[in-house]
Design a protein around this nucleic acid. Sequence first.
DNA 1: ATAGAAAGTTAGAATAAACTAACAAATTTA
DNA 2: TAAATTTGTTAGTTTATTCTAACTTTCTAT
Lengths: 222, 222
Amino acid sequence: MTNSFTEENYLKALYNLTNETGDGEVNVNELSKRLHIKMPTVTSMMKKLAGKKLVHYESYKPVKLTEKGKKEAGLIIRKHRLTEMFLVEKMNFGWEHVHDIAEQIEHIKSPVFFEKMDELLGFPKIDPHGSPIPDKNGKMVWKAYDKLSDCKAGESVTLAAILNTTSEFLKFLNSREMQLGLKIKIKSVEGFDNSMVISYGKRQNETLSHVVCERLLIEKNK
Amino acid sequence: MTNSFTEENYLKALYNLTNETGDGEVNVNELSKRLHIKMPTVTSMMKKLAGKKLVHYESYKPVKLTEKGKKEAGLIIRKHRLTEMFLVEKMNFGWEHVHDIAEQIEHIKSPVFFEKMDELLGFPKIDPHGSPIPDKNGKMVWKAYDKLSDCKAGESVTLAAILNTTSEFLKFLNSREMQLGLKIKIKSVEGFDNSMVISYGKRQNETLSHVVCERLLIEKNK
DNA sequence: ATAGAAAGTTAGAATAAACTAACAAATTTA
DNA sequence: TAAATTTGTTAGTTTATTCTAACTTTCTAT
């Protein structure tokens, strides 16, 4: 009944890819690349997960998580994000360092352990990267944030979350003193490369490339 | 190079059995019982560990940890005990509940994670069960405690550590309000079954069986 | 000193998870 | 649309860890 670490990693990757690509379908090839596991291995694992009613699988078609699969994956991601939160808030780790540790702790089998974390953290809804933390039923409430790259010159926004977090990106943000909750004013948008010039805090003239702006999720200030 | 969870569990069991039986030698049969793994499986794992120079192994002879094996096992036990300590001190778990969680977290691969725990705990030398925490080189300094069962009527002692901790035993101690550091006065020792009558705190007449007294390590008060 | 019990080993099989090689289906492109 | 490319599957292996059955060695107790 209980899933192995391996199965949990497949479920998690499936869940993340589903959220990234939108339509709820994931190709075996995408999964294979994400997990760095060869396609035949992925195919056979899909059959195994299908046997456990965690995914819908038919030959030569993309894979979909079942409701049961979504719930289990959501719970793993919940554990991952609570852990990251705990490491940052209670153990004084930097954002950049928590991912690898959380990747391991997310597989711990102990409901009380994560309930305690949740409690000590004050039942957070968003993790240190700004991503939502699924609830106890594995349900993730995605607040519909806009990308900074979709905003126009003149708008005032608040940095609410970050997409596709990597250590390098987090370091980049840190080096510019950007953190969640930051109030940003868009001064101009360059037409030829879609880069933006913004101002915030003491920094009145920062330029961000389009690639960066696409990864910053914001809420517009009224 | 890095050991699997499985290998780590064998090393840990080997280390613990070594410390329990004294002479540094462990029978395949003992290991098998401790780990709930059948003897042939244990034999083949011993060969594997011998190949990694973690144990000394010869057919039909008891197994011994090498220096390398002792060090690695000590480091795992260090992680286990730091984790237990952290769970009790920083996450408000009760003694009885920490073992199963620590059993899983001890396998996390992340030196910084455990260094941070160590730091947050103030570099403790003894875990919540009173057992010593091996140092960063896996060396465990066993302070030579006496057993309560070796004391005589009239002596005053301080509870310093507990042997062979099980959940039931910890609950038993809790139910009698006994914790580390407790000052105990031995009122009498029954000759026929070696049970002891002791007094401490508000309790002036507690009787402890020999089995219990053998598991309580104390320091004599001068 | 030896028979019987206990402890240990060997051989062979099972399962989970990964791989490569070879083939098949689907998609893209010219 | 047919060839080329990409994607997916099957079949057969490999490695780690476990097991059972059968056999051997060592210990023990009479």
